[in-house]
């Protein structure tokens, strides 16, 4: 008797993606799909695709989808969830999308405590437009709009989104993961599972930041991209859970005096 031990999750469509060789967008898609299947929520899930390399995510997931404009996925997700609280809503965003043009939307979505899940793919670069500097680009990292490397005196330091969002008082689940080794990918899936579970339970806003590779625009072969991420990104973007709804209170502070 043969037993199937590995197959395509129901929440992933049987299509070829357009992602470059060595890009981890595809791995992240798979982990999300597995979690949707395991939680049994695929049929009531609506995704929100970003503007960025994942713009065609709506072709890859076997769920209903909205394509958002650049940076606005958290606002679109808010609209969907407020209209239909029974749906499971997730936004999938890159770092230019979320941490640059869409910074206001993500901060306020988290701060309102919208019961949605955001998967934030941090690859330290603008992938789709051809490798420009992102708010997450590492100091000294070369990009097409910082050909001499990111100058922190002029461009500031890379923004640590998970740390920043976890300063908000509103309860939330905020975690950072990576998928560049199989073991870390298993951890990433666990964080995604927790993030979606908090939403399904109606508990809180959840965001999982996932470090991702972009060999194409980093200008290095796929195998080296993994090492580059480990060496340059991991020390600055530590992995772990930054905030859970159990830690923190929604009670307003009393007025002093």
């Amino acid at each position: 008797m043969l037993e199937t031990v590995f197959s395509r999750p129901d929440a992933l469509r049987d299509v070829t993606t357009h992602y470059c060789p060595g890009c981890t967008h595809g791995t992240i898609h798979r982990l999300i799909a597995e979690v949707l299947d395991e939680l049994g929520v695929r049929e009531r899930t609506v995704g929100v695709a970003p503007v960025g390399c994942a713009v065609l995510a709506y072709n890859y997931f076997e769920t209903d989808f909205h394509e958002a404009s650049h940076g606005r996925a958290p606002a679109v997700a808010t609209g969907i969830k407020r209209a239909r609280p029974d749906l499971v809503v997730f936004a999938y965003q890159g770092d230019g999308d979320l941490a640059s043009i869409g910074m206001a939307e993500i901060v306020h979505c988290a701060n309102r405590g919208e019961k949605v899940t955001v998967v934030f793919v941090n690859n330290a670069i603008y992938g789709m437009t051809g490798g420009q500097m992102a708010p997450t680009t590492m100091p000294g990292q070369v990009a097409t709009t910082c050909p001499l490397g990111r100058d922190v005196d002029m461009a500031g330091h890379p923004i640590r989104v998970s740390e920043m969002l976890s300063t908000l008082r509103t309860p939330a689940f905020v975690a950072r993961a990576s998928v560049h080794t199989p073991l870390l990918a298993v951890n990433a899936k666990e964080m995604l599972r927790r993030a979606f579970s908090y939403q399904v339970a109606g508990r809180c806003f959840s965001l999982v930041e996932i470090l991702s590779t972009c060999p194409t625009n980093w200008g290095i072969p796929p195998a080296e991209a993994t090492t580059w991420l480990e060496k340059n990104m991991l020390p600055y973007y530590p992995l772990g859970v930054f905030k859970t709804p159990e830690r923190g209170s929604r009670e307003p502070l009393p007025l002093e005096g």
């Binding site: 679109v76 808010t78 609209g79 407020r82 939307e105 901060v107």
Partner: peptide
Amino acid sequence: TFVQAESEVAASNMLYGAAGSG
């Protein structure tokens, strides 16, 4: 549901999400 958005940019995109839900 009434939501005071953080900007008109956000308000109009919330509108998009909610309208897409029918």
